[in-house]
Amino acid sequence: MSRDRFLDSPTIWVLLIGAAALFLLLLVGYPIAYNLVMSVQEVTLGNLPSFSRPWVGLQNYRQLLADPLFLLVAKNTLIFTVANVAVQFVLGLGLALYFQLSFPASSFLRGLVLVGWMLPPLVIGAVWKWLLGSDSGFVNYALQGLGLISGKIYWLADPLLSLVAVTIANIWFGVPFNMILLAAGLAGIPTDIYEAAALDGAGPVRRFIWITLPLLRPTIYALLSLTTVYTMRAFDLIYTMTHGGPLDSSNIFPVWSYRMSFELFDFGGGAAIATAMFALVLVVALAYVRSVNAERPM
């Protein structure tokens, strides 16, 4: 039974984690380090192929902070992320709870909602750009038809609204992801606990607060962190819908980084933004692990 002894030894744990870790370290760790190095160098198209480029220390970061766009983009990223994470979660939870009720075709309908998540971002961006168009967009047409607005709403062209517009589209895109993961979490809650609670006279609201939410907590933590990370790297949708405009009113860090690198060829600046994003997400990841570890071990 030497195989079993091996499988019970601590070595196996190291191997199990090691395989995935090595894979990620090699294929993502290297690119992240590559970005980090670029962020402290002066990188041009000319010296891009070699690593021996002029060292500029924190110059790229200083320039970033001094850029008049920095505060605007940071604010946009914050609003975009918070709004997305919160609304996607609330809607996702609502839908997950609704489709968990027993009624005919509930599972089928829940699966159908996932279709929105399958479309390529390019197509989602294009469709939403039409729906939100101020002249012939369906949203304005419907709102006018319902008598809710008399004029037009410039969803995309108004710098005060463009962030709202891309946020709506991105929420739409992210809700199924939240819903399905929460549904899976709900499915993991043993029904006998509910039955016992019902016998004790607990109403649906109390059962939700005292049973569902606590048992769902691991899923919720994971989901909130993942949604935060995914929202912070959202790129295609905004790029297709507004390109970050007008006047950078819908510009967020990944879009800015992309434009700096590939439109202005300021690779050091683009890399500095990427590194800053990485640092931000590190904070989110730390928060996640802390909250997970605060759970009582099962």
Partner: peptide, 19 residues
């Protein structure tokens, strides 16, 4: 001219013209 010229590409302006 439409406010949407702020976010529309040339080809999208032609879409509007064609329509």
């Amino acid at each position: 001219a439409s406010h949407d010229i702020l976010v529309k590409r040339q080809s999208e302006m032609t879409d509007a013209w064609l329509a």
